[in-house]
Amino acid sequence: MIVAEQKPIGEIRQLIAPYSKVLLLGCGTCMTVCGAGGEREVSFLRDALRVAEARSGDMRHDFLEYTVKRQCDFEFLDVVAEKIPEVDAILSLGCGVGVQAVAERFPYIPVLPGVNTSFIGLAKEWGVWDERCAACGDCRLAETAGICPITRCTKGILNGPCAGTKNGKCEANKDMDCAWVLIYKRLEALHQLDKMYRYYPPRNFRVIPRPRRIVRKVDVKVGEGNG
């Protein structure tokens, strides 16, 4: 799941300063799950902005609230279309993908980001999220016992651990587990320690020609045996 954090109110206020009617657009999928931009956060943001405006005596914004099921698919955005003429700008609480989808769907209205999209991760417990995947496009988890050194090792090295590991923790942050110690322990438990003795050549960064695109659709010409 994509994890994000709501931007500070001050920054959001600066973003919306030039506009008067703003649609606060939430997203009902990842942003709801990570508590950054679901319906509750949309309403929280509106309330916080209202307090800010009331305190500064500058009550010139009108806010509309709406939360769609998912911002990153155009079809879900269709219902927003009727609200567009009423507003000057959209503050999207979707992830970076959502913001761009909204911008692409509605070409003639400014779209502003309300969250900082942070990483792909999971909820460790209520209120704590950890990064787990860098979306590198070249998955090595089979070799590293299902623990990703790219994301979970500060240095992202493929042949760890480095000399900075101490008591199972990372030299960069003493509270953080050394990913390579975790990998070693898990391989040991799986009786696959031989995987530790192999050398892994550097990753081929060329597999990431940005922007990436996956095409699953096959080109089929009409009339060539398919009616």
Binding site: G10, F44, V51, R55
Partner: peptide, 16 residues
Amino acid sequence: WQRIEKVRKALSQIGL
């Protein structure tokens, strides 16, 4: 308290 701390954070961002 979880909710109070969340609101407190927003308050300080607002300047309260």
